[in-house]
Nucleic acid binder design. Structure first.
Length: 228
DNA sequence: GCGACAG
DNA sequence: ATCTTGTCGC
């Protein structure tokens, strides 16, 4: 049980969701620095049915050194909120927490498929998940939501700051040579530099972290099985 | 008012 | 997110 059996009620509407973000944002730990050599790292991802009314949320826990999957859990359910940019977390949170609850191993770090601080109100999915579970968390987005940046160098490891409203909210990080960069931001209890290091440690071969790749495969197959 | 907008 | 044809390359 990773979330400690945390209860999580989705908001009734957009106004309430905004109030919840406003209330929780101040409780995010932006100091970190978080684990530099974690033993286990979890990846979280969600797959949706084309009808849009069903989803599968998966969590995979990897041995941080070998990147082998040591635990996993997946739940099929319904989106808890309609998709609204900036309120994305409310959609997947209940299912992801349910999946986390089914883990046997409590991971030392959560790698989320979406942003953390790189969010219009500095409270993206990674912040929300980290805060609710109490675990260190980072966000790895495939496309930007907010901010401006300069193109990082072409080699793996190159990065540039992602800035929004004058503040650095993340890093645009190249995880593979000559491949489109990813957007890394702090979720909870992590420093930005450590978050970027952890992402590089999870991307020995592909653009996206192994954690999100394994979670992605798991939720897709679970959704297909559930719909069959 | 118009366009942008994680997954 | 999901749909979707072809295409380039290991």
């Amino acid at each position: 049980m990773t979330s400690g059996g945390i209860r999580y009620e989705p908001p009734a509407d957009v106004a309430e969701a905004l109030r919840v973000q406003e209330e929780l944002r101040s409780r995010v730990d932006l100091v970190g620095p978080g684990p530099t050599a974690p033993t286990t790292v979890a990846g979280l991802d969600v797959a949706y049915a084309e009808s849009g009314d069903r989803l599968a949320a998966a969590v995979t826990v990897l041995d941080a050194a070998t990147l082998a999957v040591v635990d996993e859990a997946v739940v099929v359910g319904r989106p808890a909120f309609r998709y609204v940019p900036g309120l994305f977390a409310f959609r997947e949170m209940p299912a992801l927490l349910a999946a986390l609850d089914r883990l046997t191993v409590r991971p030392e770090l959560l790698v989320c498929d979406g942003h953390g601080l790189a969010h219009p109100r500095r409270f993206g999915l990674a912040c929300h998940l980290g805060l609710v579970t109490g675990l260190p968390a980072i966000g790895v987005g495939k496309t930007p939501l907010v901010g401006e940046w300069a193109e990082p160098g072409p080699e793996r490891g190159a990065w540039t700051p992602l800035r929004d409203g004058g503040e650095v909210v993340g890093r645009v990080l190249r995880t593979r040579d000559e491949v489109r960069p990813v957007f890394v931001s702090v979720g909870h209890r992590m420093s930005l530099a450590n978050a970027a290091d952890r992402v590089l440690a999870l991307t020995p071969r592909y653009r996206l972290p192994e954690t999100t790749r394994t979670a992605d495969r798991l939720c897709r197959q679970a959704l297909a099985a559930a719909l069959a």
